[in-house]
Structures are given as C-alpha cells and as structure tokens.
C-alpha cells in the first residue's frame, strides 16, 4: 500500500476568549484507507506522546449519522466530496503531498469552544421552540388508523434525514440556518399529524432562529451543496411558504 504525506494547516484556539492561529503540522505515512478523522487520531496520539495539546475536534458515530463531526476542509464544510460528512471522508481523496486546511464552523451563533469544536446549542433551542408534535405518551391511536400517502411519507423522510451538523450555516455567507429549520418544518408539514400546530410551530422556530443570530437566505444554495444528507433547498421554499401562512391570520 502506498502511504502518503501531508501538510496540515489547522485552526487552533484555546477557548472563546483566546485568539486563533493556523498551526502547521507535517504528517507522514498515512494510509489512503484511513478516514480524515483517523488521520487526526494518528496526529493526536503523537502529540500526546510528546506532551503537546492534541487537536480538539468532534466526532462520535463516525459513520455519517450523528452530526457531531464538523470541520471545514480546504474551505468547504465536510470537504469537497458530495453527500459526505468529515468522518466519512477517506484519505484516498487527497493527493500525496497535499496541504490540507482544517477550520471550525464559523458563524455568530456558533461560539468557539476549542480548536475545531464550536457550541451548536442554538440548534437545540430552535427545536425546543417548536420542532415537535404535541402528543403525550400513551395517547396515540393505532398507527393504521391514519393513512399517509407514500409520497408524503417519503418527502417527510427526505427532510427528516437532517443530522443537525450545521454545515449549512458554515457554508452560508449569511450564516443562515434556513436549511436546518426548513428541514424540520417540511418534515412535519408533509404529515397529517403535523397539521394542527403548523402555524404555531413555524412562527416559533423562525423567531428563535432570528434570536440566535442566524442570517436570512439569499438563495446562494451553498447549503444544499455541502449538506451531507443532500437536503434540497426546496425545504427553504416550503419554510417561506409556511411562514407566510403562519402570519396571515
């Protein structure tokens, strides 16, 4: 197997109060079968053995579903492979000798924690504002008491595939969260269960989104291009439509 060498330029920042800088690290003997994060593991294990602070970065599932990993790779959130999270990006996609720049998500609403890790709890607060159907445990009718058109179920699923990583925000020049918010609105708007609360939900989520300091959409569509789950900007159109409905009475 031909092992490869890289130059890493990595955003380092001790905490939200400290200034950031780009650290340059040379890495050697990297297998093309490693994921980018496994390459960082190798770097970190080495840094620990020489008593230097390892690079803080986030990950958990390492299979593209939990949404924890969040790195801007050579200027693109999650890197240039389509429909791929950073944890699923393998080193075979990088040329031997390449310089790889790694930065955190940058947006006013995402507060730096350390190196490549930022605080994304703003997303949780938007969901808490209204991203649910009000049904208490134990009160549901039989699942088959309600027929749902397959297309509606499929469309709801496509929107619900959002992993809440925040790449959409990181890619947007306005740091807009409308793809993220639209995904939830669209999921529940396609389902009959979501109907009774649709206006209240849309209103509350949009208000919270603005309060958190996310910008508005100006149709550059970068979010769709970087979304690891390839969520369509159609959900933003749906969000706008639902929002207009929610304020007109």
């Amino acid at each position: 197997m031909n092992l490869r060498n890289y130059t890493l330029k990595i955003w380092r920042q001790k905490d939200k109060f400290s200034p950031s800088y780009l650290d340059t690290i040379q890495v050697k003997d990297i297998s093309p079968d490693m994921s980018l994060l496994e390459m960082l593991d190798v770097v970190n294990n080495h840094l620990i053995t020489i008593n230097k602070e390892p690079i803080a970065f986030e990950s958990d599932c390492r299979e593209g579903i939990c949404g924890a990993c969040s790195i801007v790779i050579n200027g693109i959130p999650h890197g240039k492979e389509r429909g791929t999270t950073a944890c699923q990006l393998h080193m075979r996609h990088f040329e031997d000798g390449e310089t790889i720049t790694l930065e955190p998500w940058r947006a006013e609403a995402f507060i730096p924690i350390k190196d490549l890790v930022v605080d994304r709890t703003a997303f949780d607060r938007i969901q808490q504002a209204g991203g649910y159907i009000s049904v208490n445990t134990g009160s549901a009718p039989d699942a088959h008491s309600m027929l749902i058109h397959k297309n509606a179920a499929d469309e709801a699923f496509d929107a619900a595939a959002c992993i809440g990583c925040g790449a959409c925000v990181a890619a947007c020049k306005n740091a807009s969260a409308m793809l993220f918010v639209g995904a939830k609105i669209s999921q529940l708007a396609h389902l009959p269960q979501g109907d009774p609360e649709r206006k209240r939900r849309t209103n509350a989520m949009v208000m919270q989104m603005e309060k958190e300091g996310f910008g508005s959409c100006s149709n550059t569509l970068e979010c769709e291009a970087v979304c690891p789950k390839e969520i369509s900007t159609k959900v933003i159109a749906e969000l706008n439509w639902e929002f207009i409905r929610s304020i007109n009475n």
């Binding site: 649910y132 159907i133 049904v135 445990t137 134990g138 009160s139 549901a140 009718p141 039989d142 699942a143 088959h144 309600m146 027929l147 749902i148 058109h149 397959k150 179920a153 499929d154 709801a156 699923f157 619900a160 999921q187 529940l188 389902l191 269960q193 979501g194």
Partner: peptide, 22 residues
Amino acid sequence: VKIIDHCVAQGVPFAREYGGLL
C-alpha cells in the same frame, strides 16, 4: 405495539406502502 402507535403520532416517517399503510 404501543411504541409504533406513539412514534407515528410523533411524526416519525416510517416506510409506507402505496396504500398508505406501514
């Protein structure tokens, strides 16, 4: 049995058949 009912009520988009059933 009750789990499925509850999850559907929450809006979990389970796979469906053309007739609209799960």
